[in-house]
C-alpha cells in the first residue's frame, strides 16, 4: 500500500500545474524515500525531474516500491475540485489499478474522494550527469516569468548572457528585437527579491523561449528560481517545492551549426 498525506494539498496541485504543459502523462516512482518523476516532453528537447521527499509529507507510507503511470491532464482536472486549504491524501491500495485522491476541508466538514485509473506507460530514463555549472543566476520567479513572456513577443529564441555584473536576456524576430538586463542586487530588504549571480565563467546560451514559458508554470511554487548554465550544456531551471523537494527542468540549447 502507498499512502501520503499533505496538510497543504495546494502544494501538490501547484506541482501538477507546473508539469502538465510540458508532460501530459508520466510515471511516478514511489519508494520509502519519497516520490520522484522524470519525463521528457514529446519532442525530446526538455526534461523534467521532480523530487518530493517523504519527510515533507504529514504522513507517508510506502510498503513496496511502485511505478504509477498517471495522466497529469486528468489529475489536474481532479485537483481543481480541491478547496484551497484542503488536506490531500494520495493512496494506492495493493493490487489496485487506480490512485485515490482524498480531499478534506480544514473544518473537517467536507470530505471528497476521487479515483483515477493508472496507465501503463513506456518510460525511458536518462542519466543526468552531475555538473559543475559555470554560472548560477538566482532571481525572483515572477520576474523570470515576466521576462520569458515578454521575450516570446519578439522571437522564438532567447539568448541568455551572464557575466559577473549581470544577466541579459535578448530576443529578435520579424517584428524587431529587444533585451532586458538585470544587474546583481547590491542591497535588498528581502532575499526573495534579490538577483544574485555566482559565476566562474561568462556564458552565452540560446534557448527556445516556448519551453522556458512552460517551465514558468511552476513559478507559483517558489519565490525564487535558479538558472544554472554552462556552455554547450542544457540549462537547469530549478524551483524549490517548500523544503520537501524540487522541480528541475532541463532544456537543450540551440547550437550554431
Amino acid at each position: 500500500m502507498f499512502e501520503a498525506r499533505l496538510a497543504q494539498g495546494s502544494i501538490f496541485a501547484k506541482v501538477i500545474e507546473g508539469l502538465r504543459e510540458l508532460v501530459t502523462e508520466a510515471t511516478w516512482e514511489c519508494s520509502g524515500n519519497g516520490i520522484t518523476l522524470q519525463a521528457m516532453d514529446s519532442s525530446h528537447v526538455a526534461l523534467v525531474s521532480l523530487v518530493l521527499r517523504s519527510d515533507g509529507f504529514e504522513t507517508y507510507r510506502c510498503d513496496r516500491n511502485m511505478s504509477l503511470g498517471i495522466s497529469l491532464t486528468s489529475m489536474s482536472k481532479v485537483l481543481k475540485m480541491m478547496g484551497k486549504d484542503d488536506t490531500l491524501t494520495i493512496r494506492v491500495n495493493d493490487d489496485s489499478d487506480a490512485i485515490v485522491l482524498s480531499m478534506e476541508s480544514q473544518n473537517q466538514e467536507e470530505f471528497a474522494e476521487y479515483e483515477l485509473r493508472l496507465m501503463d506507460l513506456d518510460s525511458e530514463h536518462l542519466g543526468i550527469p552531475d555538473t559543475d555549472y559555470s554560472c548560477v543566476v538566482k532571481m525572483p520567479s515572477t520576474k523570470f516569468s515576466r521576462i520569458c513572456r515578454d521575450m516570446a513577443i519578439l522571437g522564438d529564441s532567447v539568448t541568455i548572457c551572464s557575466t559577473k555584473d549581470g544577466v541579459k536576456f535578448g530576443a529578435k524576430g520579424d517584428v524587431g528585437q529587444g533585451s532586458i538586463r538585470l544587474n546583481q542586487s547590491t542591497n535588498v530588504d528581502k532575499e526573495e527579491d534579490a538577483v544574485s549571480i555566482e559565476l566562474r565563467e561568462a556564458v552565452a546560451l540560446t534557448f527556445a523561449v516556448r519551453y522556458l514559458n512552460m517551465f514558468c508554470k511552476a513559478a507559483p511554487l517558489s519565490n525564487q528560481v535558479n538558472l544554472s548554465m554552462s556552455e554547450d550544456t542544457p540549462l537547469m531551471c530549478e524551483f524549490k517545492v517548500g523544503d520537501m523537494g524540487h522541480i528541475r527542468f532541463y532544456l537543450a540549447p540551440k547550437i550554431e551549426d
Binding site: 528537447v45 530514463h125 543526468i128 550554431e256 551549426d257
Partner: peptide, 14 residues
C-alpha cells in the same frame, strides 16, 4: 543558423 539539440544528445539513456 542555430539548430535545436535534443536533450538525449546531452543526457544518455539509462
Amino acid at each position: 543558423t542555430m539548430t535545436q539539440k535534443s536533450i538525449t544528445f546531452f543526457f544518455g539513456k539509462k
